[in-house]
């Protein structure tokens, strides 16, 4: 059974079809890149997978069942924005996660935070944007999930932090889990991808294994992308 399946998924906003008849299967144990231009529908698709949007048509199935409390226990989502309660401290946020997520490894999170020099008594509102993003990454990676969905984890982040993020993703890799990385900064992450899904104008343009694509096109995925979706 596949990990996550989208069947004829569509989403309309007012008069625009953000997603049209998307059919997708995410396998286990793979690092998958969701690549597309800004506005292609990546974030819409991801929000639908996380039950933050209601489909206009079609369904999302996680391990064969509709999205619900069980699927949310197994999906760890890192959105682009900061979603933490600003009045809470880092320590309180950790306890919040530990309270609701049964597979949250609080010790691991504390270790990672210590590495990042993040004090546990710091209030979220006092942290810089970069620190907040790192904190959110740590929180997501400290959960033992079956699917990690990271939306633009490298955007607006310095190169050292980018390396840190990629290392963390690789260190966290488990054979029964998958990672879905959505980004438009393809060159930075393509070397760790197993598979790629190209999305354009709300439809799936291509699904392929990363190395197969490189062999077939004789170039980097970044180059292929530029060629194919030239403005």
């Amino acid at each position: 059974m596949s990990l996550l399946e989208c069947k004829h998924l569509s989403k309309r906003f007012g008069n625009t079809m953000a997603l049209q008849d998307v059919n997708l299967t995410l396998p286990r144990g793979r690092i998958i890149g969701l690549l597309g231009k800004n506005g292609a529908g990546k974030t819409t698709l991801i929000k639908l997978m996380n039950d933050l949007l209601t489909p206009t048509g079609g369904t999302v199935l996680f391990e064969g069942a509709p999205l619900g409390a069980e699927s949310k226990q197994a999906i760890a989502y890192l959105p682009e924005r900061t979603y933490l309660e600003r009045s809470m401290t880092v320590a309180q946020t950790l306890r919040y996660f530990a309270t609701f997520y049964t597979s949250f490894d609080q010790e691991k999170a504390q270790r990672l935070l210590a590495d990042l020099d993040l004090r546990e008594d710091a209030r979220i509102s006092t942290l810089s944007k970069g620190m907040q993003e790192k904190l959110q990454l740590v929180l997501v990676m400290s959960r033992k999930a079956k699917l990690y969905i990271l939306d633009e984890p490298l955007g607006g982040v310095d190169p050292a932090t980018r390396d840190y993020i990629l290392d963390t993703i690789l260190q966290n890799f488990a054979e029964d889990a998958s990672v879905l990385l959505s980004t438009h900064l393809i060159a930075d992450i393509e070397r760790i991808l197993d598979d790629v899904i190209l999305i354009d104008k709300g439809q799936i343009a291509e699904e392929a294994s990363a190395d197969e694509l490189r062999t077939r096109e004789g170039c980097a995925i970044d180059d292929y992308f530029r060629r194919r979706f030239k403005c």
Partner: peptide, 13 residues
């Protein structure tokens, strides 16, 4: 709002 990204992804019905 923004914190809803957390609320709606909690493993609760």
């Amino acid at each position: 709002g923004d914190p809803s990204y957390l609320t709606h992804t909690l493993p609760i019905k």
